[in-house]
Design a protein around this nucleic acid. Structure first.
Lengths: 256, 256
DNA sequence: CTTTCGCGGTGATGACCATCACACCCGCCG
DNA sequence: CGGCGGGTGTGATGGTCATCACCGCGAAAG
């Protein structure tokens, strides 16, 4: 309790610095029911409120490192995080991008084995940390938490399977990149839809290097492929906002 | 109950035909505690015994098909099964090989979405089927089942992640194949260890085509790589039993 | 016994892409 | 202002591997 009193002002300051709304109380969180993990029973939420430690992290924070023994889990409240794994030679690949409402570090916590991935915040983010031991108790005490855990794990599996399909079944790099763009296009930012032409605007905060890691290729190839798409008039790229001009053409490239 | 009386003789006949010991009663199963899912509480096992439908399947049986709505889950008692996914053009990739004691079709059952993979028995196999609705009840009734489910799901995730690492981070096909062989070498068949030379005997029931699907390459390349390993004296292949002669050399190929 | 079929071996060829190398842009900071 | 660093565009080159084509083998089937 005392800790909370000390902590909150710092969090609020940080949140203000990052221009974030901080979610202090899970019971009052308005996003709760739309999120993968957070929609728990009242009792479970109460307990969660008691054992969680809320923090705000700047962009680029490493929440955990691949290979380290599990310390606990993070529930991502705001912001997005990148899960990646690295080979001995430093080549690395992105496993998936986690959205708000997801639990991170779950495989490690449940099986009590080292973290499978390195987790890095991609934006200023708020997350609730729960220590390994408290999480295990929490899990055993409330059956509905177990259900949510199972759902988060199936979500992880599905992401992994789709990554495997992308890596193993696609024929060419352009195909994989087109597929990726089309997935992003499912959540466009239709802020104004200026012009009303069929363009689909999306926001891409990944660098070409990261895109390369996502599809398992090299940075240069990503650059060439995107240049190709641009030259063909399928795509317009202005900084972090892209415009999909010819969605059909991209879809035509994808066979899976 | 009546059904059981009718069913058992057929199962027994099939089991005899396949030269299998059939495990009729989970409570008496001697393998139980060494298995991922089966080591449940007494009460849960009793319930499981009541709702399961035991069957024996020949090699090559398709337990479920990718994309179909979930009907239920299978608990694999004996035999191994291959989980694979296929692209539109018929190219397919093996996600993993399931061992006895694993639950199959779990992601689909938990999230009530279509099966992620096609599951095919690789050997004559015994499995317990539980229908979707009964499984959900079972899960809600016994908390320890939820825990086991979570463990199975983390296992699935880990397999998937290691597959992603293999597909995305390995440099060459020989490296991936060497890695695969080394994984198999962790469970050698040391039946006699005739000679006492350092050779590690393993049993490989996959065709070269399947190995190709496992590492995401073509059948011809697998043939060439294995031929190469043989010519270099690293590996002896006699039908389905292989002998790893030079483990060090294979390890040296692997960087991850 | 011959046929068929699934599996494994191998050569030739070319596409695709990783890699190296360098140039460019832009925001930042001393 | 100049230098620096992160992100990006682009050419040249060579290696890896998919693909096609064909062969041989052995087991099962007719």
């Amino acid at each position: 309790m005392i800790k909370k009193v000390v902590v909150v002002p710092r969090e609020l300051l940080m949140a203000m610095a990052y221009n974030l709304h901080i979610i202090e109380n899970c019971l009052k969180c308005t996003f709760r029911e739309h999120r993968l993990f957070c929609d728990l029973s009242h009792d479970a939420l109460g307990k969660l409120q008691a054992i969680k430690a809320t923090s705000v992290y700047p962009k680029g924070t490493l929440l955990c490192l691949e290979g380290q023994p599990p310390r606990g889990i993070y529930i991502l409240c705001t912001g997005r995080a990148k899960l990646s794994t690295t080979s001995a030679e430093g080549k690395s690949i992105i496993l998936r991008i986690a959205d708000p409402g997801e639990v991170l570090g779950l495989t490690a916590a449940v099986s009590n084995t080292p973290y499978e991935a390195t987790i890095e915040t991609m934006e200023p983010s708020q997350a609730n940390f729960i220590s390994q031991s408290e999480f295990v108790h929490f899990l055993q005490e409330f059956p509905d938490v177990g259900m949510k855990v199972a759902q988060q794990l199936t979500h992880n599996c599905k992401c992994a399977y789709s990554e495997i399909r992308s890596l193993g079944l696609s024929n060419s790099v352009p195909e994989k990149i087109a597929k990726l763009i089309l997935v992003w296009a499912e959540h466009p930012l239709d802020l104004h839809r200026q012009g009303g032409n069929g363009d689909i605007p999306i926001r891409v905060t990944l660098t070409q290097e990261e895109i390369a890691q996502f599809v398992g290729t090299s940075r240069e190839t990503v650059s060439r492929v995107l240049g190709d798409f641009r030259r063909k008039g399928w795509l317009k790229i202005k900084g972090a906002t892209w415009n999909i001009v010819n969605k059909k053409a991209l879809e035509h490239l994808v066979t899976t």
